[in-house]
Design a protein around this nucleic acid. Structure first.
Lengths: 198, 198
DNA sequence: GCGTTATCTTGACACCGTCCAGTTACTACA
DNA sequence: TGTAGTAACTGGACGGTGTCAAGATAACGC
């Protein structure tokens, strides 16, 4: 009982699995994560994880959920207390920083693997939609503060600007078209575009 | 000899494989494509494809290349002969239409599977970069024609606007957030943003 | 103390990508 | 035309994958 590793019942397998999965992914990408290696590393039998996650898919979804929560925490910490005029800028920086600092987590959160075929876990779906809803509210606030042009439907604006950030993150993570050297210039261009102030 | 299926040497295996792979992917997504099923469908042994593609990765890259060529063809056909004022709009529509009409091809072209770890085939890389280079030229032309604001570095503008389209395509294909009903409104918003005319 | 239930294990199945050694047929040159 | 060389193709095998089914074990409620 004192040594959970030696007891037949692990006691805290679920969270241990999530932690080990995060490690494995950090070490070698999502492709390096297999249910068998995961079980092996935790010191448990091949099929033990299936008593805590119905699927590999479910495990990945759980990791994605964690990602959304960390993301929202960072946003709240770094964008919350900040002069209104700088909040948009700060948001953009924070978004990109998160995506580029933990690309694997970002892949999990927004990768087709978890969303394809409308297969996301209900809880993941809720987490993601909450995240986007809060972004729309931010946009509305920015419009009210005069940081963003007020003539546009805030929802459409939120969708397009999020698309820009998401697309940029994807292109950078995947190493297509854009080079990390120009990140600052790119973000300036993006923010200029959003504010209609090129 | 008359019946290529019955001869030991297939004669045109490479292109037959590409065609069959396209079919398999259309039927069940990239995940449904396995080298073994592919060989089976073509009526050839498991390892025969490896004499034409070093890897599964190489095969997928070849498909992605094909995608880029089709994409460029469509662009040239639909955006080439078109009043200057409408070319930006037409480009955006064409891009999105291509992405949403053949999401699997789009996934291949821009999916992390082919680009990750800087692993793209040299020929694929060339095809993709050519595509982007032509887009930058378009942007320069649009700026010269007064369709786009001229104060911005065309390269940065091209990168950001492509990001927007790519991000939107990804979000829609993956079924995150965005509802196809509002595609028109979204594209209008995007184009308005690009032209600085909200 | 005992039965229920959650947890974990071993074995098995059907796949997968791909290496290897051998077989077959085309091709170029004598 | 014969023959050597080479490109195309085959079947077997290896190590890996996700996951189902049946059984063992330990905790928990009565």
């Amino acid at each position: 009982m004192n040594n959970p590793k030696s007891s037949y019942h692990h006691g805290d397998l679920r969270s241990t699995l999530l932690q080990a999965a995060t490690d494995l992914i950090r070490e070698g990408g999502v492709e390096a994560l297999s249910m068998r290696k995961l079980a092996d590393r935790v010191g448990v039998s091949r099929t033990a994880p299936y008593h805590h996650f119905t699927d590999k898919h479910a495990l990945l979804s759980a990791l994605a959920e964690e990602g959304f929560r960390r993301f929202e925490q960072r946003l709240q910490a770094e964008v919350g207390d900040c002069a209104p005029a700088e909040r948009l800028d700060q948001f953009v920086r924070c978004y990109m920083d998160f995506a580029l600092a933990s690309p694997e987590t970002y892949n999990l959160m927004f990768g087709s693997g978890v969303w394809q075929a409308g297969a996301p876990t209900p809880t993941l779906k809720a987490e993601a939609h909450g995240s986007f809803r809060r972004y729309v509210e931010r946009v509305e606030q920015w419009q009210a503060e005069g940081v963003l042009p007020a003539e546009v439907d805030p929802l459409r604006f939120a969708q397009i600007s999020w698309s820009t950030l998401h697309g940029l993150a994807r292109l950078m993570i995947d190493g297509i078209y854009v080079d990390a050297h120009h990140l600052e210039a790119l973000l300036d261009t993006a923010v200029g575009l959003f504010r209609q102030a090129l």
